[in-house]
Amino acid sequence: MSVVLELNKVVKRFGGITAVNELSFNVNKGESLALLGPNGAGKTTIFSLIMGEHRQTSGSIKLRGEEISKLGTHKRINNGISRTYQVPRPFNELNVLENIRVGMMPDSIMDMIWKKSDEKLEKKLADNVGFSSKEYYRTPSELSMGDLRKLELARTLATNPEIMLLDEVFAGLTVGEIEHMSQLLHEKRKEGMTFVIVSHDLRSLEPLVDRAVAMTFGHQIAEGSFIDVMADEEVRASYLGE
């Protein structure tokens, strides 16, 4: 399998704090990688670095072999990487379909003016993540946390990514919603989408991933299959407190 995303000795310092310290890992095409670690380990920072929301202090991030460290967030997204956030960020005055519409927008002013939105696709994306037709026109204030997470996922899928970074994708979801979400992610994997997933819900995460990288205090402490990583003593000590 070819490497699509490559992090090499990435360091990120915020003032005197080193949030990420010489972290390196690869993600192969079509693979699903779990990024594990306790709160404050630097997982979300890694996502922000990959997306260009923060710039790394040193090290390199490559997408399909090309260095992307100097690209802005929108260019990285247009190159096929997209992410969801730990805390969903909906557009509060827009309904579900309109929120998805923003995700589908081209990054060209002329296309925004002259090209029509695809309502069928908006509805398909909303259906895919589990919204019913009754919920299409609801605004975020009328949605539960689980629905907001689904909306976030639908909007991210609307950017047509090849690689998705999912941050705490199961948080706030009911058992049924987790099952639906897992099903959706399985389907996307079958279609060839690549995932990097952060979740504290290890039980739901395990069947979705091929490999795992564990980190603590910005350091990488283990890499391998999910079972091997979870069996690692250092991981258990830092993550599970054992």
Partner: peptide, 11 residues
Amino acid sequence: MNEEAVKGCGI
């Protein structure tokens, strides 16, 4: 409404 989220849509 949310500029960061718009950026997150690749715009």
